[in-house]
């Protein structure tokens, strides 16, 4: 999958799960700082990433996924 396509999907999922507008999100968007996400919001978002891209994201990797860019990098590596 192309990086651009992953980015598009991550942004759509983040907008849906973290109650934001897709147009306001970029690679630099930080989920906690910019979208005021708490740990339950993030769990919900990560579960959706796993399901959308059919990947497993172990709990110890959650620390690595703080921004849209982190998410895209992580998924690109896994795919």
């Amino acid at each position: 999958m192309e990086r651009q396509e992953i980015l598009r999907k991550v942004i759509d999922l983040a907008a849906d799960k973290l109650a934001a507008e897709a147009d306001d999100l970029s690679e630099n968007t930080n989920f906690e700082e910019d979208l005021n996400a708490d740990s339950i919001d993030l769990t919900d978002f990560i579960m959706e990433l796993e399901s959308e891209f059919d990947v497993e994201i172990p709990d110890e990797d959650l620390e690595k996924i703080k921004t849209v860019k982190n998410s895209v990098d992580y998924i690109q590596k896994k795919l």
Partner: peptide, 10 residues
């Protein structure tokens, strides 16, 4: 169970 939302309980 993977499809059970973390928001279910609250």
């Amino acid at each position: 169970p993977k499809k059970v939302s973390p928001f279910l309980v609250p």
